[in-house]
Design a protein around this nucleic acid. Structure first.
Lengths: 244, 244
DNA sequence: TTGGCATTAATTGCATGCAGAGCACGAAAA
DNA sequence: TTTTCGTGCTCTGCATGCAATTAATGCCAA
């Protein structure tokens, strides 16, 4: 017969998914695809409202449609993708009121997390928080905005983790990606920066004092303020669309 | 050639999924499968810890493995199913501490929802709540426990819906299925019943008074009490396993 | 020109086939 | 007897093929 047996199964050369190969316990292609797509959506490479055609995407990612479809379903549960029957999925659009609701939800969850964290956080975690806070203030002083954002995110994640509550943490993570989209689209509002750093200091103090009510209220307010500032930043960005 | 053309695509006779055909805007098989599996898991037909073999399940549901796999992924995100690489997925087990964390999370979310609901609930929704409360008290008086549970669930869902916050509602729904599993496994503790009805009355009053702080606190405490009672019921149920 | 209908092209949804990972069972070695 | 390795089987993971649905286009009639 044909001496060259063309393999029908796994081809040898995926395209865009290799970089993740060295790290973990070898995730399935669908998980890798989900992560990759999440990143592409959050960073705006896949524009909001854009149609996600299965054949195009699967070709771009170097995988077949099956794992891609599984990944899209996951992202739909997270709210990053909108699935319509018999039609191409679309990257979810983030309307103004949705951003508002999103930050309300995050504030609710982080308040609960902060209250629990005030009771359960370990000395080591507190030490880590202090360290992150110090770094954040250094970046603030240096005017390094993007490092500030990264640290800000780490701090919030650490507080939620310190609550030792799996379901709460999962809910928080799911909402976080969507909030990140909004954050990227808004104009920098450095006006809020000073305030935010100060609020973080107060939250840290409340956690050190192991005061659940204060920690919860301060963190919820902080998130609320962030949401408000972000909405303003979005309004500005929409007003002058040339400033991409 | 062969006059009998065996159709490779969609066969004509699904098996277990027909009943849902008359209702909605025709969901895909994967969504139907997800709903069906969710129900089977919650009601305990698929026992906790049991392996979910794709070929068996797909045959039982009358669908192929592809949509089944998609459904399993969704349930994994909801935490009802545990996915292990290259192994059969298992129905997630609910350990004691997980139940505790679950109710903490639900309490957190419902507190936030109640606070928002106190500000946003409409007169019509309030009226509906009063009506549900009256029905619930009637079932209570009549000793009809299962109707009481159903109404209890409706009331909680209505309060969350009245908060007008999509992300919060989604997070709540995801957690609810898992809580329902625990509820089904615990022994009836009618001792808590009277207390629970009274707490519901107080929550309704706080919403009518449009008092966010009270509504939030009362609802969170109510959920906390429910969780504690449920843990006790689970401990009893584990102690005498013959009382299935 | 415009409205309605048939036809075609594009794309999703589902079924199935193939390759490899993991587990069980059993034989051989210690 | 216990341990280790090998062999086979079962099951998942992924790729691909077929059918059905939808949107797009052109055609005809009003």
């Amino acid at each position: 017969m044909d001496p060259v047996r063309r393999p029908r199964g796994r081809p040898r050369k995926p395209v865009l998914l290799e970089p993740a190969a060295g790290l973990g316990p070898r995730l399935g292609l669908h998980d890798q695809a989900a992560q990759r797509l999440r990143a592409l959506i959050v960073e705006g490479t896949l524009p909001a409202g854009g149609a996600l055609v299965e054949t195009e995407l699967s070709a771009a990612l170097g995988i077949s449609r099956t794992p891609l479809r599984e990944a899209l379903k996951l992202l739909a549960v997270e709210g990053l993708v909108e699935l319509r029957p018999n039609r191409s999925p679309r990257v979810a659009e983030l309307r103004r009121d949705a951003v508002s609701a999103l930050f309300e939800a995050i504030a609710t969850i982080e308040r609960g997390a902060a209250e629990l964290a005030a009771l359960r956080i370990t000395a080591a975690e507190l030490e880590r928080l202090r360290q992150l806070q110090a770094e954040m203030e250094a970046h603030h002083a240096a005017g390094d905005l993007s490092s500030y954002f990264a640290l800000n995110q780490q701090i919030h994640a650490l507080i939620v983790a310190a609550a030792r509550n799996g379901p709460l943490r999962e809910a928080h993570e799911a909402l976080h990606a969507r909030a990140e989209i909004a954050r990227r689209r808004a104009l920098d509002s450095r006006a809020r920066w000073d305030e935010s750093v100060a609020e973080h200091r107060a939250i840290l103090a409340a956690l050190e004092a192991r005061d659940p009510a204060s920690a919860g209220r301060l963190l919820a307010d902080h998130v609320g303020h962030t949401g408000t500032a972000l909405l303003a930043g979005l309004a500005e960005a929409d007003a002058e669309p040339d400033a991409a």
